[in-house]
């Protein structure tokens, strides 16, 4: 197994607090919320597992083998919900397996288009990175079935911006437009030479 300290990006003589901080920062980075519906969610899940294991190992070592620290344990939602309609259930499986082409063809053959049809079409678009079409389809799904939380959640994902940013990369998001101008000028300058 990889050295747990290097997994967390700390030195072996880091203090408990530093380790906790590094762990928390990484856990925030790979949090399932940042990878909902994301085709790379499985990689993030793996990372999270590695980090949890590393943190567990370190805290156990440091507590002399007896200690136990709670690590993050959340699910990476991989569209586990099932569908009563057999075609839609198949489409969901295909989307999870990443076979978007077949999923699209199956959906095209459906004549009666309900909320779920638009939701699934939106999900395929989202997986392809067609974010605008995804949002449009989710809206149609919600209009047809306003009480469905799954559709609403998916739509909310397309409306949020930001996500995780490493430390020190948040400060500039609140800049006014003069400062923006100034900073972009800087990047063209030669400055300190």
């Amino acid at each position: 197994m990889k050295d747990p300290y290097s997994t967390l990006g700390v030195s072996p003589d880091a203090s408990d607090d530093e380790i906790k901080k590094a762990y928390r920062n990484l856990a925030r980075k790979y949090h399932p919320d940042n990878y909902q519906n994301n085709p790379l969610a499985d990689l993030a899940e793996e990372k999270m597992k590695e980090i949890n294991e590393a943190y567990d190992t370190i805290t156990k070592q440091r507590a002399g083998g007896g200690g136990y620290q709670q690590t993050f344990s959340g699910g990476y939602p991989s569209q586990s919900r099932t569908s009563s309609n057999p075609t839609y259930a198949r489409v969901r499986n295909l989307i999870n397996a990443g076979d978007l082409g077949t999923a699209e063809r199956l959906l095209d053959e459906v004549y009666q288009r309900n909320g779920e049809w638009y939701f699934l079409t939106g999900s395929i678009a989202y997986q392809k990175g067609w974010l605008d079409e995804a949002a449009q389809n989710y809206v149609k799904a919600i209009n047809m079935d306003p009480n469905n939380m799954e559709y609403r959640q998916a739509y909310a994902m397309t409306q949020q911006s930001g996500g995780y940013r490493p430390m020190g990369y948040n400060s500039m998001s609140t800049m006014d437009c003069c400062t923006t101008m100034l900073c972009l000028n800087c990047l063209c300058g030669r400055g300190c030479y």
């Binding site: 990175g129 911006s161 940013r165």
Partner: peptide, 11 residues
């Protein structure tokens, strides 16, 4: 939608 693409790039 551009912010979304930026978010996915970061992720």
């Amino acid at each position: 939608t551009l912010d979304q693409s930026l978010r996915l790039m970061g992720a």
